[in-house]
Structures are given as structure tokens and as C-alpha cells.
Computed example of a mutant assay.
Amino acid sequence: MSLLERELKSVVMTPDNIRTRKLSLGVNIGIAVLAVLLGAVVVYGLGIGNWVLVLVVAGILYLAGLFAAASRVEGRRAARNRAWKSLIYSACVLAILPLASVVWTLISKGVERLDGDFFGTSMNNIGARDPNGGAYHAIIGTLEQVAIATLIAVPLGVLGAIYLVEYGRGRFANTVRFFVDVMTGIPSIVAGLFILAFWVLIVSPWFNDGQPRFSGFAAALALSVLMLPTIVRSTEEMLRLVPGPLREGAYALGVPQWKTILKIVVPTALPGIVTGIMLAVARAAGETAPVLLVAGGAAAINFDPFGGNQSSLALFVYQQAGDASRYAPARAWTAALTLVALVLILTIAAKMLARRNSLSR
């Protein structure tokens, strides 16, 4: 008789070992309450912190108490599993709390100026004691600059990623990947300085009687420099996730490589590609330094992105947050809420368009 058979015969199937004992919900809640009370006694008794430290100490005490109680009731193996599960849930809550706090702060402080005047007027001729004034000019600037930057960066980024995945081999492809990785961490002000030195000071005088000229298009160029590496890297990773048999099946049917990429590979990876593009758009929409350096900012409405100073929502928030007027903080919070809502709307719209693709369902 084998060792396994002897072990199986030695097990007696009784109700005690058929049904596993579980730690009740009441005991779990009691441990949590006791941990909070002990944490408050320790922190406030020693005078070493506030309610934040109480929660930290209570979390540690809760995990220790849960492990001890579960070990006596369920066994050490189940206790370890329960402790790690509680730790994972706690980490999830800690990750969600800052996001929820930011959203709540934006909504609670940004609704003060959610009115027609804010969305229909600019800051032109608005003094420090004037409660009116809005961000219409900044909204127009953000939409134009991000749209132009997207039109520049998305085709270049997607095509570059397709080259790296489908065609890129050897030293040149490795060099391209290296520079893309380097550009991923480039500070936004460096991109703004590059466009300032190249476009504003060298190229723009050719079209402006020898005089350098700020413009929204220059800001869009700087934003496209920031968007490009994010789009390339995210698209490259999504294309690599496409199963190889899809390509091989198309090649076996005699489909050319370019048509396989266009009709099979890209549509399959489209949801992930759209996600990467929207991350790049969100980063571009929230940049302040490039717009300040090469667009200059303006209080009046300017619909022409190729001529004259132009503002953006991010730059508007920066300017209003530093303004001495008592009406400026409300404008800054509402502009920040508008920027977040704008990015959210664009993301939802892009996701809905990507889901319409039959191969991505």
C-alpha cells in the first residue's frame, strides 16, 4: 500500500473535518473596533500624532489581532490567507482614498463658479475687484492646442510603434527604442525650451517679418513632443500582446503584411492603443510650462492658433491660483474641474468609439 493510500485511509470523515470553522463577522468587527480604540489610546495617550496615525496604528493592530484570532479558529494556513487578503484590501482602500479626496475637493470647490459667465467670457478687462470673468479663452486654447498636438503625435507614435514591433530589427530599432525611453521621462519645461529655441526663435520669424512670435501652434508642438513617447511605448506594448497565430493565419492565406497589420493587428489592439493615446492627451492637457514658454498666455479670446498669444486651462489655473484677487481661487478651482471633466469626456468618447470595432469585442 502506497503512502498516499495510507494517508487517505487514516482520514476519518466526520462533521468536524468536513465543515471548516470560520471566523464570524461579529468577531471580525469586534477586532476592528478594539484596534481603533487601542490605536487612539496609544496615539493620543502618548501625544505623538492625530487621527491619521490612529488609523495607521489601528490597521497594524487589526491585522495582528485578526491573524491571532483566525489562527485559533481556522488554523494558521487560513489565518495567513485572511491576513494577506485584508492587507490587499487595505492597500486598495489607501490607493482609492487620495483619488476620492481629489475628486471631492474639485467638485466641492469647483461648483462655485459653474455658471454661464464663466464659460462664456474671458478675463479681458477684468480687474482684481471684479467678481466676473471666465475661462472661455482658456477652454478654446486647450481644445485647439490638444487637438493639433494629437493630430501630430498620434500618427507618428502609432506608425513608429508598428515599425518597432513588425519591422524593426537591428541597431537602428534599438536606437529608436532607447531614445523613446529617454524621452518618456523628459521634463515638460525642456520640451517647451526646445520649441522656444527652434520654432519661436528660428522658424516663426520667417513668417512674421523677422520677428519671433508666440502662438498656440508652438504650444501644440511642445505638447506633441511630450505625447509622442507615451503613445509609442503604450502602442508598442499593445501590439506585442496580439497573438502570433492571428498574424500567421493571415500570412498562410496569402494576405500581405501591411494588410495584416492594418486589418487584423491594429484593430485587435485598438482598445489598448486608445487607452495609451488618452493618457498622453490627459498629460498634454494638464501641462503648464510649455504653454507659458511658447504661447505666452492671454486674457483675451484668440481663435487663431498660428498667430498671437494664447492661453490654456492649465495655464489659467496657474495664473488664477497666484492672483491676489479674492475671486481668483474660485476661478482656479472651477477651471481645474472643467479640465478634469473635459479629459473625462474625451476618454469616454474614445472608449466608446474603440468598442464599436468588431475585432475588439
Rank of each mutant, 00 (worst) to 15 (best):
E5W: 03
R6D: 13
E7K: 14
L8H: 00
L8F: 08
K9D: 14
K9S: 15
S10N: 11
V11F: 04
V11E: 03
V11S: 06
V11G: 10
V11K: 04
V12M: 15
P15T: 10
D16N: 08
D16H: 04
N17A: 12
I18A: 12
I18R: 07
I18M: 13
T20C: 07
T20S: 14
R21F: 05
L23Y: 12
L25D: 03
L25P: 08
N28A: 15
N28F: 12
G30C: 02
G30T: 01
A32V: 10
V33I: 14
A35S: 10
A35L: 02
V36A: 04
L37D: 14
L37P: 13
L37K: 11
A40H: 00
A40Y: 02
V41R: 11
V42H: 14
V43W: 15
Y44V: 09
G45L: 07
L46Y: 12
I48E: 12
I48Q: 09
I48P: 08
N50D: 14
N50R: 15
W51C: 11
V52E: 15
V54H: 08
L55M: 12
L55F: 07
V57P: 02
V57A: 05
V57Q: 06
G59E: 03
I60E: 09
Y62C: 07
L63W: 07
A64V: 15
G65W: 12
L66C: 00
F67P: 04
A69V: 12
A70N: 14
S71P: 11
R72W: 09
V73K: 09
R76V: 07
R77S: 05
R77C: 11
A79N: 05
A79R: 05
R80W: 11
R80E: 13
A83L: 07
A83C: 04
W84I: 13
K85C: 14
S86W: 05
S86V: 03
L87P: 03
I88R: 02
Y89C: 03
S90P: 12
S90L: 13
A91N: 01
L94C: 08
L94H: 01
A95I: 02
A95F: 06
A95S: 09
I96W: 03
L97T: 11
P98I: 10
P98F: 09
L99H: 12
A100D: 10
A100M: 02
S101G: 11
V103H: 02
V103K: 04
W104K: 02
I107T: 11
I107R: 04
I107S: 07
K109D: 01
K109L: 05
G110Q: 10
V111K: 14
R113T: 05
L114W: 08
L114K: 05
D115W: 08
D115A: 04
D115F: 01
G116S: 00
F119V: 00
G120L: 11
T121L: 00
S122L: 05
N124S: 11
N125E: 06
I126S: 09
G127W: 00
G127T: 06
A128D: 10
R129M: 14
N132I: 12
G133L: 02
G133T: 06
G134S: 03
G134R: 05
A135W: 00
A135Q: 08
Y136V: 00
H137A: 13
H137L: 08
H137I: 13
H137D: 00
A138P: 13
G141I: 00
